[in-house]
Write a protein that binds this DNA or RNA. Structure first.
Lengths: 137, 137
DNA sequence: ATTATCCCTACCTATTTGGTAGGGATAATT
DNA sequence: AATTATCCCTACCAAATAGGTAGGGATAAT
């Protein structure tokens, strides 16, 4: 399952995209209220997104957040990897977070590995949809 | 990510299938040793599989486990649902474990929902592979 | 000076995960 | 009848993760 943090993060980015008008940044308060996300929890998520350079912030009285990386280049998979970690369901078939399964005897002949590699290959194209695509759905 | 329990469960069933010869049941000890699964932890998993009527057990000195439901009718998705729960990555698109996302404002227009329904639809056929298919990979 | 925002650290509770411990029941074998 | 190898059941446990909350400091517009 996706964590709420990732769900919140994606909803946040969609909201940001749909409200990046008249050159004003979008405040956390506004996101929190419109997307039903606990304010303080949202702040933590926004920080993560900023630290990973997806968005940038502006401080002060009319501060808020904007995209740093263009919305049409940010995919759902990107967000999932930043917040939740690997897309793949077992670590030994993850491209970005590879790890040996510690109980595995022979990775080369592991049937689970073949199956979950197939699975990952089917999942990835779907998750490569961008924030912009997603907003237009 | 899959839990180890589910990984162990699938490996257990493959092992069971590949060793159901000469009409003798397969012992937990044998599974544990050959598949590198902690014995006591495995016993719990076997119990779950038995309680869900995928396998049956025989007690006594030459006891062990056999399939109750034929191996060619048990899919990876079945096992995942028994041990880990839903396949879908968000609860509102799960077929077997549907639940409303509590922060969701309008399910009908939720973009995430559309995306993750697509995703589930891509995942399911892969996970519908049976233990027998998997063993032959 | 006030206010609205972002920024940072610390803390907290409940649940899940991945086990372990100990012993009872059963049935084949000796 | 005793031994042994198995399954069966309950209880417990430590570490990690999830989903927050609390409190206050820094910044910049008004």
């Amino acid at each position: 399952m996706l964590t709420k943090r990732t769900k919140y993060a994606i909803k946040t980015l969609i909201y940001l995209y749909e409200n990046e008008v008249d050159n004003k940044p979008v405040s956390a308060k506004s996101i929190s209220e419109h997307e039903n996300i606990p304010f303080k929890f949202l702040e933590k998520i926004l920080r993560e997104l900023r630290q990973h350079r997806l968005i940038k912030s502006e401080r002060g009285a009319v501060g808020g957040y904007r995209f740093l990386k263009p919305a049409n280049t940010i995919t759902v998979a990107d967000v999932m990897r930043i917040i939740d970690g690997p897309i793949a369901l077992i670590p030994c078939v993850s491209e970005n977070f590879y790890q040996k399964c510690d109980e595995c005897i022979d990775e080369e002949t592991c049937k689970l590995r073949l199956l979950f590699r197939d699975l990952r290959d089917k999942m990835l194209p779907v998750l490569e949809e961008t924030i912009v695509d997603l907003s237009k759905k």
